[in-house]
Amino acid sequence: MSEHVMEAQNIKMYFGGVHAVDDISVYVDKNEILGIIGPNGSGKTTLVNVLTGIYTPTEGKCLFNGQDITGKKLQNMTGLGIARTFQNLRIFKALTVMDNILVGQHLTISNSPWDILFHGKHYRETERKARERAMEALELVGLEKNADDFAGAIPYGAQKRLELARALVMDPRLLMLDEPTAGLNGVESEELMMLVKEIQQRNQISIILIEHNMKLMMKLSDRVLVMDAGREIALGVPAEIQSNPVVIKAYLGEG
């Protein structure tokens, strides 16, 4: 069996009586986009939270490149090459847009305590490089003009793109995006998703994508997992999903 980039085995996440995620097994391969869809409260976010170590699953295992990462803390995931964005923005509102991206490079900037106290030559060098890299990331998402604005003061759509840039600057192998286009208008979300696709192809990374926009989802994803009430109701390539009677009844049928 070849190794998957990320594999979830029989994940169960119970909050007391709430079975937020109930026995989900899914994997994502190198260079693949896995879409997750499902009605509100079906456990999509919870699944991603389990995969990124925010919650420890009640049962089940998470493997990253074959390595067991169940119960590993969120803060240690970045080191492995996992980055994510959040459904309800988690940017640093009182820092500037530039500083937000610099925090994103927390692990790649290496300074000794001496450097940090006295801002020596090595500090200035690393800082300059980090800023250049940050600027590149900002240009990618079209925020270069806002570099000195406070992150809390820029429009919602820009904040969403900022969070994406913060995740990208970490150079992840696996990127998890939780509703990256929520709150954006049609054109904006199309642009953002095309950007994501482009980056995915350029950097050869894997993506787990949660999204409500059906059209975009079917266009972008290589495979789609459909969830309802914490359970998997279908898993397959978009064409299969679109013609799956259970999915049509439970989800697509509404629209």
Binding site: T52, N76, M77, T78, G79, F86, R90, I91, V103, M170
Partner: peptide, 10 residues
């Protein structure tokens, strides 16, 4: 500003 957000970048 956001502890979980900070942890998510390592």
């Amino acid at each position: 500003d956001d502890s979980i957000g900070a942890q998510s970048v390592g």
